[in-house]
Nucleic acid binder design. Structure first.
Lengths: 161, 161
DNA sequence: CCATATCTTATGAGTTCCGTACTATATGAG
DNA sequence: CTCATATAGTACGGAACTCATAAGATATGG
């Protein structure tokens, strides 16, 4: 029964589990936040997700968006219809491939969204003030690596069986 | 135009924005992951959310769960019906208040879920090995504070207008 | 004992998701 | 050039879902 620094190892594992649990809680809380925001904007959760992906990953075609959002192409038609009708996006006919369509987010209602996220943004700013620059860098890197971990895990789940 | 350490301040703000952007990306990625996992288990996103809340926050009544998940009580009836039919939960008639029902998660299918999350858990473990104990503590604390920030932001959004 | 409040669920209307099929366009072989 | 095949987006229809309303059962306070 070799135990080199048993307390440290145990503490380390416990902290790791805490982090994973915190990530679960955080995901739920953010999902709930988006649900509330979506409610105020008369948008389904899925609509807001698509809008979020679109505004971060630039103009996309419906099929590319469907892939990134894990949705059926036909499902996106309905979503895009809703978003277009409400003035969130426009469908641009591409000039190269005339079958293709590129979805573009209109900037008009951006402030409206920003205002609704303001409570969360403010609360986050409060949290951030308590950390040094170096610590913030560390955290940013960690979060980016988590996202990457999620992406690869997702890939594994998407391809097999 | 007073500029005390202008570079630091700018870098600090930029890192803050990076963190918020990373949080957005992470949320999307985790939502997508849950969507895939849910697909394999024949569960809707909402169903899995409820299951997640239930397994973390212990046995709950439908109304308490509805509040925590931001759903209409009547919606939960349908969700709970599905979850019960598929053997995920049971409805226990409370002995105190006989109007009330407490939802309990059955442990039977826990391993099935764990296996599906394994790619993500493994990827996370890989990420975690690159940090010192002190850094992990810092990260855990940060994530918990983010969750708390989400909770309060949510509260503000829920109550007003 | 009665009025009122609370917890859950049945019902029904409106909406959404997605499998399939269809149109339009692009690409490649002969 | 012509035709077969592949691809992008969407229309359509069935099945399923969400939620407002209301009903049924139980609790609580006067």
């Amino acid at each position: 029964m070799e135990q080199t620094q048993p307390g440290d190892a145990r503490h380390r594992r416990r902290t790791g589990n805490e982090i994973k649990a915190a990530l679960r809680d955080l995901r739920i809380q953010l999902a709930l936040l988006n649900h509330q925001v979506g409610g105020k904007l008369a948008l389904k959760d899925v609509d807001l997700d698509c809008l979020d992906v679109l505004s971060r990953n630039g103009p996309l075609t419906p099929s590319a968006l469907a892939r990134q959002a894990g949705l059926h192409p036909a499902t996106l038609t309905g979503i895009l219809d809703r978003l277009e009708r409400a003035g969130w996006i426009v469908r641009d006919r591409a000039r190269g491939d005339r079958r293709s369509v590129t979805i573009r987010v209109l900037p008009d209602r951006g402030m409206e969204v920003f205002r609704l996220y303001q409570p969360m943004i403010g609360a986050m700013d409060d949290v951030l003030t308590d950390y040094t620059d170096a610590e913030l860098d560390l955290i940013a890197g960690f979060l980016q690596r988590c996202t990457e971990a999620g992406r690869t895990a997702n890939g594994k789940l998407t391809q097999d069986s």
